[in-house]
């Protein structure tokens, strides 16, 4: 066994499998986490800015965050009232 080890390349151990699984898992966990952490504040601030110009309802602004393979999508939806002028 010891003698063979010197000549044969070391077989791929389970540690590399662990690493691959963890990298995927941790990346996924982190996107999940990144979602709620700043979105509510972003939403509130956007609402404040819009309210400087237009009288809108609290529910008028919705912010959505999605992550695809290579890009992140931040979707912003603002519902303006019928009479948009002050």
């Amino acid at each position: 066994m010891g003698l063979l080890d010197l000549f044969l390349s070391r077989p791929k151990g389970s540690a590399s499998v662990a690493k691959e699984r963890l990298q995927i898992l941790v990346a996924h966990d982190r996107t999940e986490r990144s979602r709620p952490s700043y979105l509510p504040r972003l939403q509130r601030e956007i609402l404040e800015v819009i309210r400087k110009y237009v009288e809108v309802d609290t529910n008028a602004v919705s912010v959505n965050y999605e992550q695809e393979d290579t890009r992140e999508i931040l979707e912003l939806n603002i519902v303006l009232p019928e009479t948009a002028h002050r």
Binding site: R10, S14, A15, S16, K19, Q23
Partner: peptide, 17 residues
Amino acid sequence: RVANGEMLSVADVQEIL
């Protein structure tokens, strides 16, 4: 165990975290 590929190495864990 790290040398035998049975355990995550320091470098692996650092890279992940």
